[in-house]
């Protein structure tokens, strides 16, 4: 059976995924290593070791955040 596509919102933009994947897979598909970013999923910060175990679900809202220069 073909997996169902899901739609999530990442950094304010809606994105359709062919099938559910882990948060880590999503980040890596967008050019980042899991060690470089920090992720908030539906309002809660994920610990680094949760990124690979947490599977994205339809309607999820992600904030993928990176430390930058700033005062």
């Amino acid at each position: 059976m073909k997996p169902d596509p899901i739609t999530i919102t990442a950094n304010g933009k809606r994105e359709r995924l062919d099938s559910a994947c882990s948060v880590a897979e999503f980040i890596e598909a967008h050019g980042w290593k899991t060690t470089q970013v920090v992720v908030e999923r539906n309002g809660s910060v994920l610990a680094r070791n949760e990124l690979r175990t947490q599977m994205l679900a339809d309607g999820d809202c992600l904030e993928v955040i990176v430390p930058v220069a700033g005062g």
Partner: peptide
């Protein structure tokens, strides 16, 4: 020393300060 936090660029084109740490 201070640092800030911003949304990561998910377009595949990173900004030059992406790795301040």
């Amino acid at each position: 020393v201070t640092v800030a936090l911003r949304r990561a660029d998910l377009s595949g084109q990173r900004d030059k300060f992406a790795n301040i740490l």
